[in-house]
Structures are given as structure tokens and as C-alpha cells.
Simulated assay, not measured.
Amino acid sequence: MKNIFQPSVNTEVIDRINRLEPGLPAKWGKMNASQMLAHCNVSYEMVYDDIHPKPNFFMKFILKNLVKAKVMSEKPYPKSSPTAPQFIITTEKDFAKEKARLIEYLNKTQELGEDYFDGKESHSFGKLNKSEWNILFYKHIDHHLAQFGV
């Protein structure tokens, strides 16, 4: 698994994002490129912005004990796999705005570095170490960029 906290990997991911175009067709799934960018932004909104409700105790228990292991494995996500409700994007989004936001989030994450995230509380999974944060960030965005062939 590549390390999103390494500058060269962050640059590679941003280069892949810059190869996206609004009309680029997905190889699988229901989202268009703009919706996919907005979908990827949700991961970072949960870290940096307080706009998504936190799961209640019961739901957090389920997420930590049943979902976390699948999300945190290095095994790629299956195509068209289910997602949490706050990640479902069905409305049209502004491609340029979502793209700029995602690149800004990636750069902010890079600037803060992996030590900032080591032991930081996740919205859904409790405290994560820096390796788990890397998997969470890199695996998700890599999956969706591959969805659009970039």
C-alpha cells in the first residue's frame, strides 16, 4: 500500500485527479466524476469539518467491530461495494469546485503529516494509528480514481 503521507505519493494522487474530466465515464458504479470527487471529499470533511453527524454508540460499536476490519485491510475494495449514507452523492456537483476541494484536503493532510494523525480519533472507527489513517485515505481515493481509469 502506498503511503499518502509521502510527498511523492500525494503528488501522484493529485496528478491522477488532474487527469479527470467531467464527462469521463466510470468503469463501474453509479456516480459521475463530479459526484465521485464529492464522495471522496466526505472522508476529509469528517476529519476537518464538523458537518456530518457522528454515529451513535450502537452504530459506532458496529462500525468498529464489524466494518473496520474490512475497511482497514490492504485488500482492494470490491467494485460497486456498499457505502455509508453520508457518502452517497446523488445530486449533480460542480466538478471544478469538488476537484479543488479534494486537492486542498490532500495538501492539508500532507502538510499536517502522519504524526498528526497517529492516535487521532476517526469519525467512525475510534482512534487510528498513522498506518490505519494511510489505508483509510489512500485506499479509498485509489479505488475511485481507478473507477475512472486514472
Rank of each mutant, 00 (worst) to 15 (best):
N3K: 13
I4S: 01
I4P: 02
P7L: 14
S8V: 11
N10Q: 10
T11G: 02
E12C: 07
E12S: 14
I14D: 03
I14F: 00
D15P: 01
I17D: 01
I17W: 00
N18A: 08
R19L: 15
L20Q: 03
K30G: 03
M31I: 04
A38Y: 00
H39K: 02
V42S: 08
E45P: 06
E45D: 14
E45T: 13
M46K: 14
H52D: 08
P53L: 15
K54F: 14
P55T: 12
N56L: 10
F58H: 04
F61E: 07
F61G: 07
I62R: 09
I62W: 11
N65E: 13
N65Q: 11
N65I: 09
L66I: 13
L66M: 14
K68V: 04
K68N: 07
A69F: 11
V71Y: 09
V71P: 05
M72S: 06
M72A: 05
S73G: 08
K75V: 04
S80H: 08
T91S: 13
E92R: 05
K93A: 08
A96V: 10
K97A: 14
A100V: 05
R101I: 02
R101T: 06
L102S: 00
N107T: 15
K108W: 06
T109W: 08
E111S: 15
L112Y: 08
L112T: 03
G113A: 12
G113K: 05
D115W: 09
D115R: 04
Y116G: 09
D118K: 01
G119F: 05
G119P: 05
K120Q: 12
S124F: 15
L128E: 00
L128G: 00
S131G: 14
I135H: 04
L136D: 11
F137P: 01
Y138L: 06
H140S: 08
H140M: 09
H140E: 10
I141H: 00
D142W: 05
L145E: 01
L145R: 01
A146E: 12
F148C: 01
